[in-house]
């Protein structure tokens, strides 16, 4: 599933603008030297000066949009801690440390399959951004993905204008029933998989519990499912071995050394059947 990814670069990049796109959700646009980034890959940003030590580690964020003409990328994040707070306050024109692109990418549906699979993208909360870029890329390759989006409440939903490039068929769910389907996004997935879709293929990113439920639904129906995982991460390029996930097929591995896979380098995208949920 891994075509070679572009080499990562370690540079300072300029913030073009940061805007609030939903309650406490921010979009930061960055001017980057190279926009060759594959959907599903992430970047490690350092929203502080190199001399400062707080916040200490970088913040890993997946890429939500790429503009090749303008040489910009967008990251979308919820302000939850010191790093997201520092990032949203970087003024337009100021710099942020940029390391990336990192990790693997979403595998495209097999174009030679008959029929070609229909991509169903299932995103929850802060997991939606990489699916926006992937959906956009799928459409440019002639696919018509369905995008299922879940959030706690209507005010936590990203606006239509951000989701439209990714899908002409966006379906929403909210935990509190204030927008779209009342309940979890997995309810929408269940309905979608009940439709007479020709061979669906599911891609998901969101909270662990949500993705575990998506993976279970897909496994029951023998639908392929690829999940973009998140773990506490230090380096983002494989040396610290901190951001690991347990592999499901341990018995088949030659040694215990491989029991845990690195989310940053072996992922973040995994075939949902190959890891322990």
């Amino acid at each position: 599933m891994n075509e070679p990814s572009p080499p990562a670069i370690d540079v300072q990049v300029r913030v073009v603008a940061t805007t609030e796109v939903a309650e406490a959700f921010f979009q930061t646009r960055l001017q980057v030297p190279d926009t060759t980034i594959r959907p599903g890959q992430f970047v490690q940003l350092r929203p502080r000066s190199q001399q400062s030590v707080y916040p200490f580690l970088r913040i890993p964020l997946s890429v939500a949009a790429v503009d090749v003409q303008q040489q910009t990328i967008d990251v979308l994040y919820e302000q939850v801690g010191p790093k997201t707070t520092a990032l949203r306050h970087i003024a337009a024109g100021d710099e942020v440390g940029f390391l990336g692109p990192l990790g693997n990418h979403f595998p495209m549906p097999d174009p030679g399959a008959d029929p070609v699979a229909v991509p169903v993208l299932v995103g929850g909360g802060i997991g939606v951004p990489p699916l926006i870029y992937f959906g956009t890329s799928l459409r440019s390759h002639g696919h018509e993905p369905i995008l299922l989006v879940g959030a706690r409440s209507a005010n936590k939903h990203l606006p239509d204008r951000l989701l439209e490039p990714a899908s002409a068929d966006v379906r929403r769910a909210s935990d509190d029933g204030t927008l779209g389907h009342a309940g979890f996004v997995t309810g929408l997935l269940q309905k979608a998989l009940d439709e007479p879709l020709s061979s669906p293929i599911v891609y998901t990113c969101g909270p662990h519990g949500m993705m575990a439920a998506v993976a279970r639904l897909c496994a029951e129906r023998e639908v392929p499912c690829f999940a973009s995982l998140e773990e506490y991460m230090a380096c983002g390029f494989g040396v610290c071995v901190g951001c690991v996930v347990e592999r499901a097929n341990k018995e088949s591995l030659p040694s215990p050394y491989g029991h845990y896979a690195r989310v940053c380098l072996d992922g973040p995208i995994f075939d949902a059947r190959q890891i322990v949920w």
Partner: peptide, 18 residues
């Protein structure tokens, strides 16, 4: 011998360190 390492989470940021 090869070792699998500890169960995650394995990393957490703390004040000026991890």
């Amino acid at each position: 011998e090869p070792r699998a390492g500890n169960a995650p989470p394995r990393i957490v940021e703390t004040a000026a360190g991890m």
